[in-house]
Design a protein around this nucleic acid. Sequence first.
DNA 1: GACTTATTTGCAACTGAGTTGCACACTCTC
DNA 2: GAGAGTGTGCAACTCAGTTGCAAATAAGTC
Lengths: 140, 140
Amino acid sequence: MKNEFEDILTGHGVKVTANRILILRALHDASRPLSMADLEAELETIDKSIISRALATFRAHHLVHQILSGDEAKYEFCHSHEGHCEDDDEHVHFYCEKCHRTFCLEDMKIPEVVFPQGFIVEDINFVASGICPDCSKKSQ
Amino acid sequence: MKNEFEDILTGHGVKVTANRILILRALHDASRPLSMADLEAELETIDKSIISRALATFRAHHLVHQILSGDEAKYEFCHSHEGHCEDDDEHVHFYCEKCHRTFCLEDMKIPEVVFPQGFIVEDINFVASGICPDCSKKSQ
DNA sequence: GACTTATTTGCAACTGAGTTGCACACTCTC
DNA sequence: GAGAGTGTGCAACTCAGTTGCAAATAAGTC
């Protein structure tokens, strides 16, 4: 069987390259959203400029979500692979101010909200911040 | 009557200074969240380091919210002045990818959500992004 | 396969928001 | 009004992320 990520890339109109497969796989396999720095650390051989450009391409083609939490943006593999992602893949995130990790609360879907006329919504970010269970345990 | 902002500052345990009053007033009077760059532009006489430090102090004392939208953080005067702000002042924001403005949708309160056991929520960010009414009109 | 054209890559240099170091100024208390 | 504690203003720094550019690679065509 051909690499599944090749299919995902071509399916979204993104040219396949070795680096892009590695980056997409890293995002896919991660249990939580990764920052550019996380990806750099994980994919030691790949320059940050390549990661930056790949992420921009992926975002433009709706392959990944960008999540704004903490001080650096994080990226998450988008599991709904039919065009836009608002529908079935939007869940709540939690950013821990102690350990700076961002958690996916997969079970918590973002509540349906209706925006005033004229606003064209393309993406939704729902991020709570505070202290995660690990860190609140530690500090007791 | 004494400057209302002096009362707000002292009420939150923040020392009153001329700069802090100006910064807090600018945030209060703005109809939408302001970035550090916005504040620098509006308060020409105040150095960005002072704005940076004031915002850090204000955040620590729950005088302002930080909103992550677009590429730079924005700050918004916090209208609920009794300690934490989750209760009655949390509304949805909309970030326009064309004009890079962030709008307050004051009428849209953030839906109540229950987090899994162990997560201590201190702040919630609900930001939709896309095209605002002004920009979608222009591009037609 | 060889030739052409469009993209991508990898490195270094750059950019810019935001922070920090430090000397000076201010304010408050005794 | 001397001394301690903060705030201020400037310049220098930091660091995530981007960009320029020449070399490398991929895709399409004969």
